[in-house]
């Protein structure tokens, strides 16, 4: 019983820690499957975290915060789209710019508006997303193992958590089974094929980039308005890049990306619990080693030492009609 309890708690914090990764990973997946490389996930989440915290504070509504977070993130993703799609600029360069813009702007504006070194004032009550009790928790509690798991790990999360999971399902569904999904998969592999089939390459890519922005918006909002009670400078702390790693790890597919994010979230959860704990046979594992694991694993995977990461063929390449 004790063990189940512990597992459920770990699973619970795994899910909590995975949500921002999940949102950003789905965001990156949309963008990159359409052929637009995005290393600006971090910056978009950051600006969304800031915008959502500000608006949630001003209006007292977490949902208004979410709208603002999504709007701010989409605005930045449109900047990326303008540079990458319309002006065929270097997508990596644009991503670096977006990250720096977000890192600087959030602190300056936060400091100018609230004077707390870039933080926003703490959010209370309806300005934060509350925990949602799923139905039948009490009824199912008595079932061994599954009951507590449902109670602790599955139920009792905030709305963005369930929204994020829903986004995974939607991403997988839309990519695989819809017209838009087919065209999107095609445009990331061979934009000329899409163009000659009479479909606008730029249009598809812009839609993908906007979806990417919206998902980053959800992730950033979760950080500031659900996980924490307000915005802190640099609060994304590299999550956008771990999400990028998760996308690569999953070979640009939604379900594996979900598992990669959960795995990285689990590592994070374990790292927190293992602080100062000696493991039998291994001794004390430095927390930093666990924290570095997602990055190391991604490098190893990219180098083809385990499996092979195959990005969409046209990703990163601006589309130019051939003569």
């Amino acid at each position: 019983m004790e063990l189940v309890q512990t597992l459920a708690v770990i699973l619970d914090s795994t899910i909590r820690l995975s949500v921002p990764l999940l949102c950003a990973a789905m965001a990156g997946l949309w963008s990159e499957r359409a052929g637009v490389v995005d290393i600006g996930l971090e910056g978009k989440m950051l600006i969304a975290a800031f915008a959502s915290a500000v608006i949630a504070y001003k209006t007292g509504s977490a949902w208004a915060g979410l709208c603002a977070g999504i709007a701010a993130s989409v605005a930045l993703s449109l900047v990326h789209g303008f540079a990458a799609i319309t002006w065929r600029g270097n997508q990596i360069v644009s991503g670096v710019a977006i990250n720096m813009l977000a890192a600087g702007l959030t602190v300056i504006l936060g400091n100018a508006w609230f004077g707390q070194g870039g933080r926003t004032p703490p959010l209370e009550g309806a300005a934060r997303f509350g925990e949602i009790e799923l139905p039948l928790v009490e009824t199912l509690k008595s079932i061994p193992i599954l009951g507590p798991l449902y109670d602790i790990a599955v139920s009792g999360h905030a709305a963005p958590v369930y929204l994020a999971l829903l986004c995974v399902v939607l991403t997988a569904l839309v990519l695989k089974h819809t017209r838009f999904g087919l065209r999107l998969r095609a445009v990331g592999e061979n934009p000329a094929a899409v163009d000659t089939a009479g479909v606008s390459v730029a249009g598809l890519r812009y839609v993908a980039v906007i979806i990417c922005g919206a998902l980053c918006g959800l992730g950033g909002t979760y950080l500031a308005v659900s996980q924490s009670a307000g915005f802190l400078p640099q609060m994304t702390a590299g999550k956008g890049f771990i999400a990028l790693a998760a996308v690569i790890f999953a070979n640009w597919r939604p379900w594996p990306a979900l598992f990669a994010c959960l795995l990285f979230g689990l590592l994070d959860a374990i790292a927190i619990r293992l602080q100062g704990v000696a493991l039998p046979g291994i001794g004390q594992v430095p927390v930093q080693a666990i924290q570095a694991l997602p990055y190391v694993m991604t490098v190893v995977l990219l180098a083809g030492f385990i499996g092979k990461a195959v990005p969409p063929k046209a990703s990163g390449l601006p589309y130019v009609k051939e003569r």
Binding site: H177, T178, R179, R185, A186, N190, V194, A197
Partner: peptide
Amino acid sequence: MVHQHFMLVEPLSVVENVVLGAEGGTWL
């Protein structure tokens, strides 16, 4: 038109390539 360099999406199946741009509805 059949272009000199084929306008095909290699990882997709034949039928997916054939319907691309002429899918006939939201759902595939």
